[in-house]
Design a protein around this nucleic acid. Sequence first.
DNA 1: TGATATTTGTTGCTTTTGCAACAGAAAAAG
DNA 2: CTTTTTCTGTTGCAAAAGCAACAAATATCA
Lengths: 210, 210
Amino acid sequence: MNSSLDIENFLKDFSCNCKNVQKKSFRKNQTITTYIQKRNQVCILLSGAADLVRYDLNGDKSIIEHFSKNDIFGEAFYIVTTNNELSVEAKKNCEVLFFIYDNIYQKCRNNCKFHQILSANFSNLILNKVMDLNTRIEILTKRTIREKLRGYFNILSTRSLSKTFILPFSLTDLADFLSVDRSAMMRELKSLKDEGFIKKNGNRITLLYK
Amino acid sequence: MNSSLDIENFLKDFSCNCKNVQKKSFRKNQTITTYIQKRNQVCILLSGAADLVRYDLNGDKSIIEHFSKNDIFGEAFYIVTTNNELSVEAKKNCEVLFFIYDNIYQKCRNNCKFHQILSANFSNLILNKVMDLNTRIEILTKRTIREKLRGYFNILSTRSLSKTFILPFSLTDLADFLSVDRSAMMRELKSLKDEGFIKKNGNRITLLYK
DNA sequence: TGATATTTGTTGCTTTTGCAACAGAAAAAG
DNA sequence: CTTTTTCTGTTGCAAAAGCAACAAATATCA
């Protein structure tokens, strides 16, 4: 989306005096927010990287979403149920903008530039989000670990316009992202290597098939 | 979302003379659209039910999304890759509105009511979509068939405000939706029944746990 | 209504995945 | 620079899931 460039520039040095819009910084491994019903919070990640994670009753961790620069997230996009605790964890040092959803289309008292540009760009930000979510679902609906890996690798390859690309995850996190057991995934990665489908150096992957 | 009521009323008897907005009818099992890169088509399902499906190289079918009344979909929300064919299939007779994404925020020549209301409500329509997608991901990230079933049943129970609810799918389609083998799912359903977690009559399910 | 197609329910067997555990490599912290 | 922590790579075994096949029940269609 070329429109993300507009947003990027404006977010970099936004200023708004509304008490409803806040910019906060987080250090790696801190919890940025926990999803709570009815608060309707929306966040934009200005810099850094973060994951939306769920710990289920067995203590298994799932990475529900992976956020990087300019991604939008927050409980406003979620129907929060009682069965699971969702929280957003900083994977690197992060800067995050917080506001509430109701606020987006309301003109703020100051009629500040932030609100103007935000409401103009909100749909595009969400559209990007929808595309990411659809991509994620595409991968998760694949039946086997092998297909998930190949599906994800294809996407990364397409995005980087190259057969070679760098995984945006540690292998441990990749397993959580694909929602599979890490050791099983490692086994499958090894088979893919042995059978000549991929080449792997650390987290640099090269696809060897068409 | 209470805002969906506005949309519902206006969609029911919309009229727009733009050549870029079309309303079409489909019979059960017809293909409503196939996703093609760059066309940027957006669709709103006015009535009926439809599924976004993918057939992979092995011929396995996955239901990527399930659409009901007032759901929004289309290739504009997708990064279409070469590896898979995505199409939307009518599960019942359907009425569908077609237009292109660029069109949403452009004022049409006629400045018609449709475009006015659509741009005002587009964000809410997408927001609902994001919530659905997030819900779907929640379920797909569960590790076992049992957890997927229970996760999905919890959601249906919450939505219907009751321990008893009707599955919106045939069991065959439910398996495709959860992206698992049907016979394995049936086995798991049987265990859930035998162990006293659920009661099942056709596609009416009752949860027996807390 | 009768014929045809689809869905449900079930099972034996095979393959895949998850689990647990551990050693070595790499990265982070002090 | 050394220690501590996290990540990678691997394995044997157990559990879960997929596959194939079929009969019975339902639904659809002509």
